[in-house]
Amino acid sequence: MRLRAEYRVESNLKFLGNLDMMNLMTRALRRAGIPFALSEGFNPHVKLSMGTVLPVGVWGKQEYFDLELIQDMQSDEFIAKMNGVLPLGMEIQRCIKLEDKQAALMKIINAASYTFILKNSDYDYAALPDTLMSQDKLLVKSRGKQKGIDKDLRPGIFEITVNFHEESVMISILVNVGEPVNVRYDELLDLLKDHGVQYEEVLDIFRSENFMRTGNIFCSPFEKVR
């Protein structure tokens, strides 16, 4: 059977790389005694596929992985066993059974939302969404594959929202992931800086959600299954 799990990565684990996350998860699966399926070959590995890479330095509220099991397991049991062994700062929140033909996570997640928590200051954060969204182009230096060349983020940004709290401001930016414009969180940070946001004001960054987008409809990898 295949299952899809949603998990949370807290701030204390935000500096782990993708390989570290994979190791953390497979070792937890072993400690929990989950009946995972193994690949064939010289170096057998757990049939685990993680969603899009959570960047180093960013924590995640709703991240996903798919896992193949060799025997059926109830969602509740899976969650309880895993949460019993996962380190502080990592928790499985939901889990659902997948149909066999369901496409792999990496292929279907094509949008994500990053949230920047900033210290509230004199800066006019309320005006930021309109300022940015009204422009034809939002150029930054690419931090991805073609490092250093000009990259237009505008077609990859779907929505910007700003929420005010007592002492902080939360800017959430909904962006495209993968083709045609893969928007990275560090490029967004550069964009904010280019528009006068002070780097020192940034208190924290996390990925709030991952989506499967079709046109203007954004679904979570769980909704799509149902």
């Binding site: 701030s11 204390n12 684990l13 500096f15 782990l16 790389g17 570290d20 070792r27 180093v56 330095g57 380190p87 502080l88 700062g89 208190l203």
Partner: peptide, 20 residues
């Protein structure tokens, strides 16, 4: 350390502790 230093260094997981 987490806020001001680790984002700027290579392999920050060397310094975070809180391992299993």
């Amino acid at each position: 350390i987490f806020r001001d230093i680790l984002p700027n260094v290579s392999k920050p997981a060397r310094y975070t502790g809180s391992e299993v």
